[in-house]
């Protein structure tokens, strides 16, 4: 039972982390109509920056804050230099152009930090267990990820639903011309939105850094998960991204830990141990296929033109 609760918390933590990544992706798509494959590179940069700045300043928190700022800046720079020119072009151009950016970033990271990868050690106060429920111990660090991402998600909700900028963001998603006609500086708005998405990706990356190793290509696997989430949730819908991210987080985590047992009940041990790894990594794609059969536009299809 405790194990189950722990796995659920892991699922929640992973889901929320994926949401950080998917939110940026879906915002950028919803508002700028841009497919950004390089989103995973920003995740990777967040992790590299955090590892570097933390080592440099000697403080995990300070390193994280600096890394966040740096990813934001890199995101805005990339938007201004390259991506801006891709708005209004067809999706193939987006895919190719941002694929080029991935190659560039991966290689730039190899050039700057070397091919080995880095690690980001946790400070001792985070590297501990805490009691989350009577009798249930849980990693303090993972728990703090849950807390931080919940705060960020709430902040994002308030930003999008309650503020003037959020109104522009929502209007931008449904009516580009109107926002332009309001005299809003649309270029600036886009740069800011892209920076925001980049910072969210960077946040996800730097939070994962102590759990995984920081390495080249780390953004590419998780990018696909973020894509799956935006598709399941409905592209352009932040709410859909949240729901789908949690679904994927839970299903993936629980599937990996319980599917082997379930299969062993049903099949011979040999067959179970052959099938389990393959099947558990298929689960979320099966989920996506099922959602798409019934809702080709995802669970929360944003009002499309």
């Amino acid at each position: 039972m405790t194990l189950f609760i722990e796995q659920c918390l892991n699922g929640l933590q992973f889901g929320l982390l994926l949401f950080m990544l998917a939110a940026g992706l879906t915002l950028v798509f919803g508002i700028m109509d841009l497919v950004n494959l390089a989103h995973g590179s920003l995740y990777m940069l967040g992790a590299y920056f955090a590892a570097t700045f933390a080592a440099f300043t000697g403080s995990f928190i300070l390193g994280a804050v600096l890394a966040l700022a740096a990813t934001l800046l890199v995101g805005m720079a990339v938007e201004v230099i390259a991506l801006r020119r891709l708005y209004g072009r067809d999706h193939l151009d987006h895919v190719l152009g941002t694929f080029g950016l991935i190659l560039f970033f991966d290689e730039a990271v190899r050039l700057i930090w070397g091919p080995e990868g880095l690690s980001l050690p946790l400070p001792s106060w985070l590297n501990a267990s805490i009691q989350v429920l009577p009798g249930v111990q849980y990693s303090a660090y993972r728990f703090s990820i849950i807390v931080v991402t919940l705060f960020v998600a709430a902040g994002l909700y308030i930003l999008v639903m309650r503020t003037r900028v959020g109104m522009l963001i929502r209007a931008g998603a449904s009516n580009r011309e109107m926002v332009g006609a309001l005299g809003v500086n649309i270029k600036l708005l886009y740069t800011l939105v892209f920076g925001l998405g980049a910072a969210l990706a960077g946040l996800a990356g730097l939070m994962q850094a102590p759990i995984l190793t920081v390495q080249i290509g780390m953004g590419e696997n998780i990018l696909i998960l973020a894509f799956v989430i935006t598709v399941i949730g409905g592209i352009g819908s932040v709410r859909g991204a949240l729901v789908a991210a949690l679904l994927v987080g839970f299903i993936d985590t629980l599937g990996r830990s319980y599917l082997p047992d379930i299969l062993r009940e049903l099949l011979s041990p040999a067959a179970a141990s052959t099938l389990a790894p393959a099947l558990s990594s298929m689960l979320i794609y099966l989920l996506m296929a099922i959602v798409l059969i019934f809702k080709p536009e995802g669970l929360f299809a944003a009002g499309r033109k």
Partner: peptide, 16 residues
């Protein structure tokens, strides 16, 4: 050794 740092931007230029 770092040839992809050239290929990446090159790709972007082809697209543009």
């Amino acid at each position: 050794e770092y040839w992809q740092i050239i290929l990446g931007p090159l790709l972007l230029l082809v697209v543009l």
